[in-house]
Write a protein that binds this DNA or RNA. Sequence first.
DNA 1: TCACCGTGTCATCATGCGATGACATCGCTT
DNA 2: AAGCGATGTCATCGCATGATGACACGGTGA
Lengths: 185, 185
Amino acid sequence: MTGEVPDRRRSSARSREALLEAATELFSERGYDRTTIREIGERAGVDAALISRYFGSKALLYVAVLRAEHGDTAPEDLLTGPRLREVAERAERRGPVPLLRVAVQSSSDQAAQDAARAALQARLVEPLRARFTREGRDRPGLRADVLVASVAGVLLARHSGAFDDLADADLDAIVDVLLEAWGDS
Amino acid sequence: MTGEVPDRRRSSARSREALLEAATELFSERGYDRTTIREIGERAGVDAALISRYFGSKALLYVAVLRAEHGDTAPEDLLTGPRLREVAERAERRGPVPLLRVAVQSSSDQAAQDAARAALQARLVEPLRARFTREGRDRPGLRADVLVASVAGVLLARHSGAFDDLADADLDAIVDVLLEAWGDS
DNA sequence: TCACCGTGTCATCATGCGATGACATCGCTT
DNA sequence: AAGCGATGTCATCGCATGATGACACGGTGA
């Protein structure tokens, strides 16, 4: 074990990080509205009141989650083919990514909604649209929207409890079915 | 106009019906959790307290909505091909059918969740799976789940406010894109 | 006409939520 | 060691929600 010795002293940075991570998981699992700041605090092992101090509000924490989630990787670029696998795998690791939720479910807080929408467009829809345009497909915008919405539906459905086979299947099988439908050009 | 003369006298049947219709619309637009009984009452032009009297609770009203929605038509049978158009058109008329929401988003009330799940399976997933099995497709169960989840994602996304082209496009165009992907065998 | 039961209205309760401020505690700096 | 700012804890506020019971109203039959 060459891991760092965890610094047990107080640290706002550590608390912030713990809250961010817990919030990412919970927003992924249950969506914005059904996640409470008390749950976030509990999972993070941190008092929920610190959310207000470090992020300002639940909505701003949500925005921070969206930013953090995409700050560490390159843009998705494309959903099709190998990229689809990347997106799906990320959803696998952290639950059905908060970003994808906004595709299907509007949240009660307008600021959270707007931020998520902007991120979704910039990270997934726009690159896809650009690609379809480049390839000369007709209705590239609509096609991009439909593809993103489909993928969001499938990845979210996996954890909704409404499907058996989808919940049990491993990710590769799911991606295979999607690619078979949409082609992996 | 050969329509019935609307009976303006008091009538529990009329109130029940008004509540049921308003609830169907609102559950469609916003999902179970984000719809309040006060909103339902307001849209129905009926006091919200009557929900408790006539349906027992918000959750039971939701169950009644699911039943009513599918009581008047034959089973969906299949999602592909012309049937896809039927499902989509119904979603168009009444907003993104409450049934489809459960595919992607679990609700806070367990009874509501279970009822919706059962209806979704019986009405959409099972018939589709049976068809795929009959046709000898591999992984028919998974394939059915993925297709239903995709369609749910797209139809819900149309009203989520996260997509522009999808919101503006007319239904036929959307169905065309879906059919192009999944084939309309 | 009157009494009664179905129907509608309203006030209110209990609960859970996000938010906030007062206070306690820690640990660095001097 | 003392002082002080940073960090953590707790109680509580205001608000929205689902639910419920008390009461008012109305029309229908005796």
